[in-house]
Amino acid sequence: MSVPPAAVAWRLGLFGALWFILCGGELGSWPFGLPTVVLATWVDLQLAGNGQTRALRPLILMRILPFFFWKSILGALDVMARVLKPRLPIDPGLVEFPLTIPPGGGRILLANCITLLPGTISARLADDRIIVHTLDKGLPVVAKIQDLEGRIASLYGPCPAKETGRGLP
């Protein structure tokens, strides 16, 4: 399997930065750090498997990040409001959702982001569908996941079919 040099460089830089943060920038730590960084890069490449390396697009990631943070805060406020009310206003249930995003990192990111959305957690990810547990079946769960899926699809390299799902919260 041939590995593109860009993938190696990215990982080396990332793990190097990680080591730098962990050791507080101390110079004496690098005799241990350098082999560790190289080893981590090697292990990560092994684990990444049959290299479907569709690069994340950093600029769009920057633009979408505030949306994720905002949704996550809304999600926490939603849980807080429900839990603190004496009547405990919940109406939980399972919702199934067919996925159009291709398998790989995007799906895992989607599953993790669904967990951040108000009122939903992802329960199972299996062959082209995802089972979501919702705190309130009255919420527009499917519409929200569709919106999220569109945003995550636009994070990854060119994918002409899914560029339309952006906009409207």
Binding site: S72, I73, A76, V83, L88, I90, P92, T115, L116, G119
Partner: peptide, 30 residues
């Protein structure tokens, strides 16, 4: 308060799935 509501949720909510909601959302934001 987010941490506290996470704990209250863990104690008050009826089943494992709903408790997961309280834990993962409230505590992380806190």
């Amino acid at each position: 308060p987010f941490f506290l509501s996470g704990t209250i949720g863990l104690l008050r909510l009826p089943d494992i799935y709903t408790r997961l909601h309280a834990l993962t959302k409230a505590d992380n934001v806190g």
